[in-house]
Amino acid sequence: MFNLTKEELEKNKGIKTATEIHQQPAVWKELVSTLFHSKDSSKEFIESIYTRHEQVRVIFTGAGTSAFVGDTLVPELRKQNNKQHVLFEAIPTTDIVSNPNEYLFKEVPTILVSFARSGNSPESVAAVSMGQELINDFYQVVITCNKDGQLAKNSKNDEKSLVVLTPEKAHDQGFAMTSSFTSMILTAYSLFTVNAFTGNNATQLIANAERVVDSVTGPIDEILNFDFDRIVYLGSGALGQLSHEAALKMLELSAGQVVAIHESSLGFRHGPKSILNEKLVVVLFMSQDPYTRKYDMDILRELAADESGMKVVALTEKEDEEVESLADWTLHVNHSKKDVSSDFYLALLYVIFAQTLALKKSIQLGITPDNPSPDGRVNRVVQGVTIYK
């Protein structure tokens, strides 16, 4: 996998993370099949809440990567939304738990959609308890990779709760969330989208993902020949939200040795551009939307003209001569004849690049990707959190 033998990955303690990145297309196939067979009952649960109330808040929540699932998903669902009385929001559990009265409103019917790999994070469990305590009409959807986690257990026999499990393989055993992230975001999308995630859309996405996991290594190995110790991920809209997850993957798997930040394509000029130097890589997630793409192209041209010595990587849907002439490395992720219909689908392909780059940079630095913090400073399931009444 990724030009590394099984023996090399085991020696560098990266076999779990590498497998979990590489397996994503196969996990998505299994997920699509599972969701297809349960879609009627799941949709019925959600639609019944919509029809019961004049207004409904849908809050996507989680901590860390689980929070970024909602951040990336909400722009697409807001764009699709044809039910004006339904409001989609993304609020991290870490914000809800520390400031519940700022986010949970007694008189507003609310569906709290919890994303959780383990389902045991104290903030995730507490956010649900606070919602039940503070909101009159409270419902929850738990999307988790662990059927034995506390969130799933607490929701059993609750008629106001729906638990949706991802495939078992999505329950990542490595430190960083990879296949769990993409599986949970696809699960939520299938539940709340007005466009059915089956048939051609799913087939095209999975086929492109298979090509990406098999082709991404060559360009990444070239990028790793450049000695960088800082990286910036840029994007617009949903891809700007995805850049937060991409930056976190590098920060986690490099154990902080690579400074990783994220920003929107337009926002980068407003201060964060100060980070430019000869040890920097800028990764630009380019939109497929013609209007939004204009702003991505502008920052790409600006970066290409910069004389700091940094390098630019552009991820784009299809081959583009101008992009290739401006960026130091260009990767296109759509290998089918059909156009990708939204940036949401591009996000699922782009994140594979970010995951793989973080994995290989971690190994290059002599860090163990499956457990990049062996001293216990950070943990796979967060520790040290006190929940106050």
Rank of each mutant, 00 (worst) to 15 (best):
residue 375 D to A: 15
residue 365 L to V: 03
residue 361 K to C: 04
residue 345 Y to M: 14
residue 365 L to E: 02
residue 376 G to H: 04
residue 382 V to A: 06
residue 370 D to G: 07
residue 380 R to S: 05
residue 361 K to V: 08
residue 363 I to A: 01
residue 350 Y to F: 15
residue 367 I to R: 01
residue 363 I to D: 02
residue 371 N to W: 05
residue 368 T to K: 15
residue 384 G to D: 00
residue 383 Q to V: 15
residue 352 I to H: 01
residue 378 V to A: 04
residue 350 Y to K: 13
residue 383 Q to W: 05
residue 381 V to C: 07
residue 387 I to Y: 02
residue 388 Y to T: 14
residue 349 L to E: 10
residue 351 V to D: 08
residue 361 K to H: 05
residue 383 Q to M: 13
residue 388 Y to P: 09
residue 389 K to E: 14
residue 384 G to L: 09
residue 378 V to F: 08
residue 380 R to L: 07
residue 363 I to R: 01
residue 356 T to L: 10
residue 354 A to G: 05
residue 366 G to C: 01
residue 363 I to S: 01
residue 346 L to W: 06
residue 366 G to R: 06
residue 349 L to I: 11
residue 376 G to D: 06
residue 355 Q to R: 00
residue 388 Y to C: 13
residue 383 Q to R: 14
residue 349 L to M: 12
residue 354 A to Q: 03
residue 345 Y to F: 15
residue 364 Q to E: 09
residue 364 Q to K: 15
residue 367 I to F: 03
residue 345 Y to K: 10
residue 351 V to N: 08
residue 372 P to Y: 02
residue 346 L to E: 03
residue 353 F to R: 07
residue 383 Q to C: 11
residue 349 L to R: 10
residue 349 L to C: 13
residue 362 S to M: 00
residue 376 G to W: 04
residue 380 R to E: 01
residue 362 S to W: 02
residue 372 P to I: 08
residue 362 S to A: 04
residue 373 S to T: 14
residue 379 N to F: 14
residue 350 Y to R: 13
residue 369 P to W: 00
residue 349 L to Q: 11
residue 376 G to I: 11
residue 359 L to I: 12
residue 385 V to K: 02
residue 368 T to H: 13
residue 362 S to C: 06
residue 359 L to T: 11
residue 386 T to S: 06
residue 352 I to M: 10
residue 351 V to L: 10
residue 382 V to P: 02
residue 381 V to Y: 02
residue 348 L to F: 07
residue 372 P to M: 08
residue 367 I to K: 06
residue 369 P to T: 08
residue 347 A to P: 04
residue 356 T to D: 08
residue 362 S to V: 05
residue 379 N to S: 15
residue 355 Q to K: 01
residue 374 P to W: 10
residue 354 A to N: 03
residue 362 S to K: 02
residue 347 A to Y: 00
residue 364 Q to F: 03
residue 362 S to P: 02
residue 365 L to F: 04
residue 366 G to D: 04
residue 380 R to D: 02
residue 367 I to Y: 05
residue 345 Y to E: 14
residue 375 D to N: 15
residue 365 L to C: 00
residue 356 T to C: 12
residue 363 I to G: 03
residue 387 I to E: 02
residue 385 V to Q: 03
residue 364 Q to L: 08
residue 367 I to G: 04
residue 352 I to G: 07
residue 358 A to T: 12
residue 382 V to C: 06
residue 353 F to K: 07
residue 345 Y to G: 11
residue 378 V to D: 01
residue 346 L to M: 12
residue 379 N to Q: 15
residue 379 N to C: 15
residue 368 T to W: 11
residue 386 T to R: 06
residue 385 V to I: 11
residue 365 L to M: 03
residue 358 A to F: 07
residue 383 Q to F: 10
residue 388 Y to G: 10
residue 361 K to S: 02
residue 377 R to F: 14
residue 379 N to A: 15
residue 371 N to V: 08
residue 374 P to D: 10
